[in-house]
Design a protein around this nucleic acid. Structure first.
Lengths: 166, 166
DNA sequence: CAGTATTTTCAAAAATTATTGAAATTATTG
DNA sequence: CAATAATTTCAATAATTTTTGAAAATACTG
C-alpha cells in the first residue's frame, strides 16, 4: 500500500470513528488529513481534497486549533493561512484528553459532588448515597489521573503504563 | 435535597451527558433510574416514570442488559420482567470500559496495524510511517492497560491508581 | 483609501440518529 | 389449546446534529 492509498484510508478510518469519539466526522477527517500531510495546508486545499464546503472547513479547522491539535503557520509570500497538525502522539493525545475530560468527566463530578449528599434516613436514601458516593470517588480518582497526565511531563504516562504492565 | 429530588436530578444529569459518552440519552436515563432505585423495576415502571414509549424502553433496557450493566430478575408471583442495575461502580465501570474499548479503540488498532506499514522511500512516506507508528504504539499501550482493567481482579485499578498518584 | 482577497458567521437544508406506537411474535395461564 | 399477557420488532416520524453556501466582516495590497 503506497502513500496516497494509506492517506486516503487513514482519513476515512479516522473520520468514521469520529462519532464514537464525540467529534464531528469532518473534524476528525481534517485532523487525519493534516496528520498525514507533509506540508502545511490551506483551507482551499482541505476543501478540495476532502470535498467539503468552506464554512465546514473553516469551523472545523478552528475547532482543531482551539483543541491545540493544529496550528496556524505562515508561509513566506503566501497570503492564505496554512495549517499544520502536531504529529507527535505524545504531544497531541494529552490535548484530546484535556478536552474530553472537560466535556465528559468534569460535569459529572461537579454534579455528584452535591448529589451524593442526599438527605434522609430511609434505607433507600442510604443506598442511593452509597451508590452516588462510590461513583463520585471513582470519578475523582480518574480525574486525578487524567489531570496528572494532561499537565504532566511528556513521557510520564508511557513510562508509568509500561512499568505497570511489564 | 431529599431522595426524590436527588434521583430526578441524577437521572437528568446522567441523561444529558449521554451524548458525550456515546450512548443514547434514554439508555443513560434508564441506567440512572435503575441505579437509583431501591427495588427492581418493570418496563411499565420505566415507561411511566421516564415518560417514554414501550419500544424505546424495551430497546434500551436490552442494551443495558447486553452491556452487563443491568440484569433481569424474577419477582415471585409477578409475571412481568423486573430489571435491576449493578450498583457497584467497581463492578459496572469495567463493563462500560469493555464496550467502549471495543467500539472506540479496537477498530483504530486493527486499521493502524496495516496502515503503519505504508510503503515508499520518499520523505513524506517515511514521515507518515512514523506518525502512524507512533499512534499505533500509543494505542496498543492504552489497549493493554484497558484489557488488564477489564478482565482483572476487582480492586486492581483503584489500588494501582491510588499508589500511582500518592 | 479603494479594491480585492480571505475568513467568519449563521440561517436554511441535509443527513443522521433516536423515538414512537401499533402490529407481530413469544410466553404464560387456566 | 384458547385466551390473555408480555415482549419484541420495525416502518414511520420526530429530534438532533452537521453541513452548506452566500452574505457579512475582516485583513491585506498598492
Amino acid at each position: 500500500m503506497n502513500y496516497d492509498e494509506t492517506r486516503e484510508e487513514f482519513i476515512q478510518v479516522w473520520g468514521s470513528l469520529a462519532s464514537s469519539w464525540g467529534v464531528s466526522k469532518t473534524m476528525a477527517s481534517i485532523h487525519a488529513y493534516l496528520l498525514s500531510s507533509a506540508e502545511p495546508k490551506t483551507t482551499d486545499d482541505i476543501m478540495s481534497d476532502l470535498q467539503i464546503s468552506r464554512g465546514n472547513a473553516n469551523m472545523n479547522v478552528r475547532a482543531l486549533v482551539d483543541w491545540g491539535l493544529v496550528r496556524k503557520v505562515s508561509i513566506a509570500g503566501e497570503r492564505m493561512d496554512h495549517y499544520e497538525a502536531d504529529k507527535d502522539v505524545h504531544s497531541f493525545a494529552p490535548k484530546i484528553a484535556r478536552e474530553r475530560r472537560k466535556r465528559e468527566l468534569e460535569p459529572i463530578i461537579e454534579q455528584l459532588k452535591s448529589l451524593r449528599k442526599v438527605e434522609g434516613r430511609t434505607a433507600e436514601a442510604k443506598e442511593l448515597k452509597k451508590t452516588l458516593g462510590g461513583i463520585y470517588d471513582f470519578a475523582m480518582l480518574g480525574d486525578q489521573f487524567l489531570r496528572r497526565y494532561i499537565q504532566g511531563e511528556k513521557g510520564w504516562l508511557t513510562r508509568t503504563l509500561s512499568k505497570l504492565l511489564k
